[in-house]
């Protein structure tokens, strides 16, 4: 298994595990607006600010996504390439997302998804915020209570990314 040297110092532990309660499961239906904004607003409107989300499929009226590439500047191990733009209608096959807190504590959704375009070709990648107009999308959110993800500076990868936060799991390494 190939491993890569990250730009920053290796931080410990290598697995961050936080154990919380189940704060409920919520079914979400979106019929308009942007996918990420819609998920964010629907869940925060229901009083939820930390959740794992499974997209159950649907249709979009267009879709911008990005896939990874080697960072040519060397500042990071990998970065995103230029967005790929799909015209609608696009079929959403499924996707996974995390609702957490952004750098200023604001609600933020990080989402990857798989889609089929009008010619039947599969696509997928990192969903570009504001660039996934919803036709109809349903999802299930698993609400995590007392634990979740918050964006934090990560010197090792040289990114500001979601960090697992909250109560420490019993028996977990410090």
């Amino acid at each position: 298994m190939r491993t890569l040297k990250q730009p920053g110092p290796v931080s410990q532990p290598r697995r961050v595990v936080r154990k919380g309660a189940l704060g409920g499961r919520l079914h979400v239906t979106l019929t308009d607006g942007d996918l990420l904004e819609g998920l964010r607003d629907a869940l925060t409107g229901a009083g939820v600010d930390r959740a794992g989300i499974k997209l159950l499929g649907g249709t979009l009226d267009g879709f911008w996504y990005m896939t990874g590439m080697v960072d040519p500047t060397g500042a990071r191990v990998a970065t995103y390439g230029e967005p790929t733009v799909l015209e609608g209608p696009v079929t959403l096959v499924s996707g996974d997302a995390i609702l957490g807190a952004g750098p200023e504590g604001e609600p933020l959704v990080h989402c990857h998804a798989v889609l089929v375009d009008g010619d039947g070709k599969l696509h997928g990648g990192h969903v570009v915020p504001g660039k996934a107009p919803v036709g109809l999308v349903t999802a299930v959110a698993t609400v995590t209570e007392g634990v979740g993800f918050e964006v934090g500076r990560d010197d090792e990868t040289n990114y500001a990314i979601f960090q697992a936060t909250g109560f420490r799991a019993t028996g977990a390494a410090p």
């Binding site: 697995r15 189940l22 930390r50 698993t142 697992a164």
Partner: peptide, 17 residues
Amino acid sequence: AGTLVVRLKPNEDLVTG
């Protein structure tokens, strides 16, 4: 019996991690 949120860091294996 609750939830776990997990972050795996670089070079951890997905499955065994």
